[in-house]
Design a protein around this nucleic acid. Structure first.
Length: 285
DNA sequence: CACCAGGCAAGCC
DNA sequence: GGCTTGCATGGT
């Protein structure tokens, strides 16, 4: 990876595995939107950012080396060798095929609290509406920031949401999930989450929060706590796993156990390649 | 008009 | 333990 500065932009070259579309459309995040054929704009960790994909590399618009080192290097998981991960997973022929569709995926290292709320909202919902609800949450309760001549909104801190009433939060149209958002806000406003917990212990702790069950906890572990062995089983992953590995219906638990044995510490990466492939090609539907 | 959407909790046995 | 149902809202 190389970094050049050019009148206020950073240009990152020699990047392995980096497709804006695949990273932002693979369902792991909800605050990035396509702003042109080659660019996406979003907000993370209190910063707005526009990215453009070019033949030479990726342009990080209007940002600094300081923010790149402090925020974006980790957020985009630049320390991880995706070539090595893909080579290992490709020993499985089904994964090799899935990786052929999403070879530019990277798993973002997102904010824990934002992940908790985002995946609470994801329950029994579809991705466009998840994004809409989160945008309303940020616009209503986040802080306005100005970037490249436009307004963006940060993700509201738990302290900002804790104490709100169901009526207060009804403006975001989260439906039955509103009470879970408030419960999570109460928890995170009053609790320092023990990030050093083992994955099983961290999952058990997350599941104490109303609205967080098995699948949401797995997503939070994977995207918000960097637990790359986590393998969330949702309707899409269930369908594609049944189609590719079982040829018959199986419970989520059976699928999760199978994935743990087969993919081990790379379960989360495998899950993202399978999820992206399933949705792109509508496999098993 | 039904039915579904990156599920979860509560209520049943 | 496993299985069923209700849940808010918006899109097809």
């Amino acid at each position: 990876m190389r970094i050049e500065e050019a009148n206020g932009d950073l240009i990152i070259t020699d990047i392995d595995s980096f497709s804006l579309e695949q990273i932002f459309e693979c369902g792991q995040c909800f605050r990035w939107n396509r702003t042109s054929a080659e660019s996406y704009t979003g907000v993370a960790f209190g910063r707005a950012l526009r990215l453009t994909e070019t033949d030479n590399g990726i342009i990080f618009h209007r940002t600094t080396r300081e923010d790149f080192n402090k925020i974006w290097f980790d957020y985009f998981d630049f320390a991880t060798d995706y070539g090595k991960i893909k080579a290992t997973l490709s020993e499985d022929k089904i994964l090799a095929n899935a990786i052929g569709y999403g070879s530019g995926i990277r798993i973002l290292r997102q904010d824990l609290w934002e992940c908790v709320v985002s995946f609470i909202i994801s329950a029994s919902n579809n991705i466009p509406r998840i994004k809409k609800i989160i945008a309303a949450l940020c616009q209503s309760f986040g802080e306005e920031i100005s970037y490249m001549g436009e307004s963006y909104y940060t993700f509201p801190a738990p302290e900002r949401l804790a104490g709100l009433s169901l009526d207060d939060i009804s403006v975001i149209k989260a439906g039955f999930r509103d009470k879970y958002i408030l419960a999570a806000a109460e928890y995170f406003a009053n609790t320092e989450f023990k990030r050093e917990l083992g994955t099983d212990e961290a999952k058990a702790e997350l599941k104490r929060i109303a609205g967080i069950g098995e699948k949401v906890a797995d997503c939070v572990l994977l995207f918000g706590l960097g637990r790359r062995e986590s393998f969330p089983v949702d309707v899409w992953v269930k369908r594609i796993m049944e189609y590719c590995y079982f040829s018959e219906p199986k419970s989520n638990e059976v699928i999760a156990d199978f994935a743990k044995k087969r993919f081990g510490t790379l379960g989360g990466y495998a899950q993202q390649y399978l999820f992206f492939w399933a949705r792109e090609e509508k496999i098993g539907i």
